[in-house]
Nucleic acid binder design. Structure first.
Length: 325
DNA sequence: AACCACGCCAACCGCGTTTGA
DNA sequence: TTCAAACGCGGTTGGCGTGGT
């Protein structure tokens, strides 16, 4: 049984809303509320689908919406909640007054995902790429492990090359005190060398992660609490930080410590007790943590891997964390 | 000046869930 | 209890603006 459309598609206007339409919708809702979205366009004199009206109202016209840039605190909140909740945008948005799920989703997809990738962190699991590879490696039988580095390179190569070489090399070359009149071909050669170098570093790092699984730390290195752990690829001295107040987005992340109310301890380990989290959040986080404790399923748990002394793929974390967007 | 590539974001689409007759 | 209608959510798309060549 097919689902019937929510409205007559032939008779409805689509695409961008005009200010006149916005006015009609807003004034109608101000008078009558949002009881029945199917009737609203008819009664308001709009040739729009009720669903389209609802979206326009909830994502744009609602008077309590914020329309400006996301603040540092909001950004931190999104990243930390995403580490716990995944793509549950409506729940994440509910913790950010004035932001819609669409706002949060767009912000995540266009900004935050890239930031994390640029730091060598998988935006899905919130783990370092290198650690993910090592986890996979330890789970595979030896004959398959041998090919993992190549496969991983295939997966991550494009993005990592983009992040590690193109933008950064461009930046560095512009910043460098290259002698006046350095030829374009010199620049290109430098770029090419850097790229090859980065590929080789990634290759080495992954190979080591695979060949030396015993270097894996006994506990999750990204958890704020726990024994100091060596990064299995490179030195990670002084990690994790002794104090739990570190921020998700370290200094290289573009923040200077904004005093976000969210504290990693809220979602570290099995206890996520954020007192200021509202609505469905508490239950959901408990649910997530329960699943994690049962099946060792990773739910992010704070993603506290941002130590400038950490080295991913033999690249200093400082490099990875430099703003590149 | 023209073209192209890319990023951003508003809007759409389809599916799962909830509601109410 | 069942089922159609409405609602809500997350993924995807398309258009616009901007910067680079």
């Amino acid at each position: 049984m097919g689902r019937i459309p929510c409205c007559e598609k032939d008779n409805v206007k689509r695409g961008q809303w005009t200010p006149e339409e916005d006015n009609k919708l807003a004034s109608y809702i101000a008078q009558h509320g949002t009881r029945n979205w199917r009737l609203i366009p008819k009664n308001a004199g709009l040739q729009r689908c009720g669903k389209s009206c609802r979206l326009r109202w909830t994502n744009y016209l609602r008077p309590d919406l914020k329309h400006g840039e996301f603040s540092e605190a909001e950004e931190q909140t999104i990243m930390r909640l995403h580490a716990v909740l995944g793509n549950r945008w409506s729940i994440i948005a509910a913790q950010l007054p004035g932001r819609t799920d669409n706002d949060v989703k767009n912000y995540w997809n266009t900004k935050l995902k890239k930031k994390l990738s640029g730091m060598g962190i998988d935006p899905v699991t919130h783990k370092p790429f290198s650690h993910l590879m090592a986890e996979i490696a330890t789970a595979l039988p030896p004959p398959h492990v041998a090919h993992l580095a190549e496969a991983a390179l295939g997966c991550f190569k494009d993005e990592m090359l983009h992040l590690l070489t193109k933008k950064r090399v461009d930046f560095q070359l512009h910043q460098s005190s290259a002698p006046q009149g350095a030829s374009t071909s010199t620049s290109l050669t430098a770029k090419s060398d850097e790229k090859e170098d980065a590929v080789e570093k990634i290759r080495l790092g992954l190979s080591r992660a695979i060949l030396e699984p015993d270097m894996l730390p006994p506990s999750k290195p990204w958890e704020p609490m726990g024994a100091p752990a060596m990064n299995f690829i490179g030195a990670c001295s002084g990690f994790p930080p002794s104090a739990p107040e570190f921020q998700y987005g370290h200094s290289g992340f573009g923040d200077e410590g904004d005093g976000s109310p969210w504290n990693p301890s809220m979602c570290a380990g099995g206890a996520c007790t954020a007192g200021n989290q509202r609505g469905r959040l508490d239950g959901i986080i408990e649910e997530e943590n329960g699943e994690e404790s049962k099946g060792e399923k990773d739910s992010g748990s704070g993603s506290s891997i941002f130590n400038p002394d950490c080295v991913l793929w033999d690249l200093p974390a400082d490099d990875l964390m430099n703003p590149i967007m």
